[in-house]
């Protein structure tokens, strides 16, 4: 989205975003923030989102269909094979467990690689809703951050992964490109100032990288 949109444009964007009918590249992160900022001050647009939420829910529910019974059996068998850690169930406990697991995995991966382990405080854990990939961003100081990602899929020839940093309200700034190592891991240094609200994201791009993202991010995290 270029420039500041009018009220009517933001109202339309909020509706379309909620339905999932908006362009879904990284630029929408900035677009989404513009919508959110506007929603705080506009009752009419909040109503528009509520309208789209209800309609979208109805469209989704209209498709409901019972899956085959054996799917549940298969799923429960898979769950039984992957017991979860028993704990308090609190958000903090869960996040600590996830963070610890990522740290251990990354530490192990680092042992297999020749370069020096990263240092510096963890700035963000990168999460993916639909892949197994995850990552950790560290800010050792200054304008450099290190990004370590694991469980990356090998890409076809001609495609690379690319990092992006998105300052609040700004367009995505291109970061370095990289490929997954043999263990599905990557370790990349990027130049961006670790400020609050900064979003770090990873997309798949044509070899050589892009100046603006051409696919949706599959891995993201925001500095709190």
């Amino acid at each position: 989205m270029s420039g500041i949109a009018s009220h009517d444009e933001l109202r339309d964007l909020a509706m379309l975003y909620t339905l999932g009918a908006l362009e879904t590249n990284l630029a929408d992160c900035a677009e989404a923030r513009a919508i959110e900022a506007h929603l705080h001050e506009c009752d009419a647009c909040r109503d528009e989102v509520a309208l789209a939420q209800v309609g979208t829910a109805m469209i989704a529910r209209s498709a409901a269909e019972a899956p085959p019974q054996e799917l549940k059996q298969r799923l429960l068998a898979a769950v039984a094979e992957t017991p979860r850690r028993h704990g308090s169930g609190s958000n903090i406990a869960r996040w600590t467990a996830v963070a610890a697991a990522i740290t251990v995995l990354i530490a192990f991966a680092m042992l297999l690689r020749p370069h020096q382990p990263s240092e510096g405080p963890v700035a963000i854990y990168l999460q993916s809703a639909t892949t197994q990939a995850s990552g950790v961003v560290r800010a050792p100081g200054g304008d450099a951050m290190t990004v370590e990602v694991e469980h990356l899929a090998a890409l076809p020839a001609g495609e690379v992964y690319q990092l992006w940093s998105i300052a609040p309200g700004a367009k995505p700034a291109p970061g370095p490109t990289f490929t997954a190592g043999s263990q599905g891991t990557a370790h990349v240094t990027m130049h961006a100032s670790p400020e609050k609200g900064l979003v770090i994201a990873v997309t798949i791009e044509p070899a050589g990288g892009s100046q603006a993202p051409t696919t949706r991010p599959f891995l993201t995290g925001a500095l709190q």
């Binding site: 975003y17 929408d28 959110e36 929603l39 509520a50 209800v54 892949t131 890409l155 798949i204 599959f218």
Partner: peptide, 24 residues
């Protein structure tokens, strides 16, 4: 090659209204 996802839905958009919950 890798399953993608949309950017995170902003918290304000993610807040569910009563009617939406009723649908499900």
């Amino acid at each position: 090659a890798v399953r993608l996802r949309e950017p995170e839905i902003p918290a304000t958009l993610a807040a569910a209204g009563e009617l939406e919950e009723t649908v499900f």
